[in-house]
Amino acid sequence: MTLIASRRMMIAGAAAASAGLFAPAIFRPARAQGLAPTPTMRGGANNYRPGAPIVDRIGSGGFRMTGTVRRAGDGAPIEGARIQIWAHTTEGYESDPESHGATLTDATGAFLMDMPQIVPTFGQPHGHLAYDAEFAGGGFKTVFLRPVMSSARDTRLEAHFVLAEA
């Protein structure tokens, strides 16, 4: 009997916990032109190098990182946003300065960076991207992304920023 009671308690507890987890998503008020800002991803800022220089490409290339930067709310493209990109590649570790490089978005808010092939590290083939308010001219809040490749053999990866005004 106690076993059954405790099992019921557990099921009730689990239900309550999951309701608590999902409630915010369900009851979040719908915004008028609601393009929500991209949240910083867990571990996104690891091995970041503040102020890494703007480069034509990182290392000898072969792998392409692309993406867009837009404004939260109306989704307008942001031109001239400074995006730093870094990863563990065939040419260097994440923490090496030469594995880092920054680029600016064009008038359509798009950016691209050629870099060496990303190799899996810490169990996942992934890249890092940063929009750092301190080095990007301001106006928007800092965001760090850590996209994961669907396969380690991929030779391209995309990441998109929607920035909240500071």
């Binding site: 867990r42 571990g43 996104g44 690891n46 570790y93 994440e94 810490f122 169990g123």
Partner: peptide
């Protein structure tokens, strides 16, 4: 070894705030 290789990633894992579910 992981702590030496990449301190931020290893510390994230130990503090259970790593992005990787297997950590």
């Amino acid at each position: 070894g992981l702590l030496i290789a990449s301190p931020p990633d290893a510390i994230d894992a130990l503090l259970l705030r790593s992005p990787t579910p297997f950590s």
